[in-house]
Amino acid sequence: MAEVAENIQNIIKPENLVYQKSPVLTDKVMHYCPGCSHGVVHKIIAEVIDEMGIQEDTIGVSPVGCSVFAYNYIDIDWHEAAHGRAPAVATGVKRVFPNKFVFSYQGDGDLAAIGTAETMHAVNRGENIVMVFINNAIYGMTGGQMAPTTMVGQVTATTPYGRDVDLNGYPLKITELIAQLPGAAYVTRQSVQTAAAVKKTKKAIRKAFEIQANKKGTAFVEVVATCNSGWKISPVDSNEWMEEHMFPFYPLGDLKDGEKEDPEALKMNV
């Protein structure tokens, strides 16, 4: 036993370090529930900002929802927006500081419900911002009510017998809607339940920031996420539930990869 402990001490040396907490994250302990996907996505964004060396030049816009306190955890400049209005605020920030990196970080209640108009129009204008969308199919902060993205048949606080299409409508695939818009440059859907998925999401978010640097249009990254407190199952079971029920309806992958449409090509002939 002592030998094992000694071996470990020989390995734990600064020169053997392969992974540590990103220096862009603050030391504050996150208020998220155990196993919440928000923490992983915060970490990914912090790592991308660190790797690109843009900590001084990045401005985040935080939403209303669980991630409202994102400004406490990622050590960059932040702006807090009214519920759903993060893309509108991000538009303003980006237009005032065109050389800064601006991103909005929103959940599904914020982006796909109250903020649908702002989301659609910001993307349609082709604003050079990054939008990170966390889709966990529920209103997590307020106690697990039905969101527009809630699955058909999913039990929530406001749909105790499961979501009924006749009464509550269909789940909203807002990422598919956004992929149609001419201003979108990069639209993708990712997840963070395994190490491989985390690496893919990191690549997607890095690509989104690079698209912003090249002024190609709006980059939109949806992350299919879990809300184990809202779903009332354990974090590990939530990941399985998400893979089983959400991935068939919200398939992962790139929906659009290119740049915004050339305005010259759309000009009418006079």
Binding site: N16, K21, M30, K43, T194, V198
Partner: peptide, 16 residues
């Protein structure tokens, strides 16, 4: 892998 999926970034990994 453990550190990548950790939501609270509380894992540091060493390799030799």
């Amino acid at each position: 892998n453990c550190a990548l999926v950790c939501p609270d970034s509380c894992i540091t990994v060493y390799k030799a």
